[in-house]
Design a protein around this nucleic acid. Sequence first.
DNA 1: AAAAGATTTAATCATATGATTAAAATATTT
DNA 2: AAATATTTTAATCATATGATTAAATCTTTT
Lengths: 217, 217
Amino acid sequence: MPESFKKLEKATDSLEQIFSTEEKIKNAARKVFMQKGFSATRTRDIAEEAGINLALLNYYFRSKEKLFELVMMDCMQEFISGLKIILNQEGKTIEQLLEDLVTHYYELFRSQPDLPIFILSEMRSNPKRLEGNLGIKESLSKSYFFKILKARTPNKINPFHFFMNIVSLTVFPFVAAPMLKQISGTNQEQYDKLLKERIKLVPQWIGLMLNSEIAIS
Amino acid sequence: MPESFKKLEKATDSLEQIFSTEEKIKNAARKVFMQKGFSATRTRDIAEEAGINLALLNYYFRSKEKLFELVMMDCMQEFISGLKIILNQEGKTIEQLLEDLVTHYYELFRSQPDLPIFILSEMRSNPKRLEGNLGIKESLSKSYFFKILKARTPNKINPFHFFMNIVSLTVFPFVAAPMLKQISGTNQEQYDKLLKERIKLVPQWIGLMLNSEIAIS
DNA sequence: AAAAGATTTAATCATATGATTAAAATATTT
DNA sequence: AAATATTTTAATCATATGATTAAATCTTTT
């Protein structure tokens, strides 16, 4: 065998080892849990998806439950970390921060369409989940964003309404995509176009709301 | 035994029979499926909730799956029927229709907090579900509401964006309640106050958006 | 090279779950 | 009142599932 072929063989081997068995299981578990939820996912499903032997799930992670907890914490972190980072960028206007935010979630959910509902379902079943991420409340309420939001909020309205609106307009169109596509009679491509337009529209709409004198009548 | 006591006994019997066994099972199934989802719900859970013998589930409904389908169709119908009715009320302004709508969903979700996410999860797992409700797309696209929405939509923006906004601002705060409560550090009572304020605020915000000259830049 | 440690495998287990069964009980019809 | 039909019950079944086990295999250490 020529030396050049030996080098190629060695390179192939190291590519094959990029994902350890533990990594393979975690990736597969993430995918299947996100699609099917905890109870409808069998350990056999994960093993098949990972291309490994079933017993390895217990060997590496001890139980289905523990594996799920790990995966869920990762997903929560991923869901929330963009919020923390973007809302603490100083020196930008609210509209600019919002455009960053909607862009971030557009891209995150486009690549992982099941992520939001996976998180929201788990939050409803186990509300204590987020308490593991103790930074979230502190981080958000002391963020640069909340500071300038308060400064711009019309009198007599709780500033949190605007945060609710931002998150609603950003996340819900992904959560409700199957339903909204059917109602509008659009396919995935057409629906995606709408979602992309909202990167520019949502910040403007929120700006509109903040500039108005609307009150609770 | 005096005649008056006999009459009382008869009245008690007929109260006891208000719910047939079939009804009891359906009601219990609805509750438990909504809380736990299909896979995490055992037929034994439903039987316990209904206070009946386990075998009756198969006697009356043949299978867990069939019972779920029945319950899900009911829930879908309940979720959607308010939309159809309210959006076809002629002679009202958009703001008035929206106030009716937000009120309707506020009340519906307040009494059944798990309903929206139950529906949305099922729609993502089985998007064909809504196709059984063939009236929805026709009914909505030809509704009085869509007619006046189109008339008021600024140029160059797909009117469907506004429908998405309406549904997002109305439904998502319920779907994401566990998370938003934690982020805002509010309890259920305080959060409910926010939701109630939105009955007046959401229609005004939507009106604002419709009146603006915002475009996709 | 042998020993020790780690990983993987296939079989098996203990338990849970949806479903079935046959008998008992109740309700309705004759 | 007896016969028939329907509903209910408790036990049992067939299968699925998360988990365990012991042996085989692979890797690392001595």
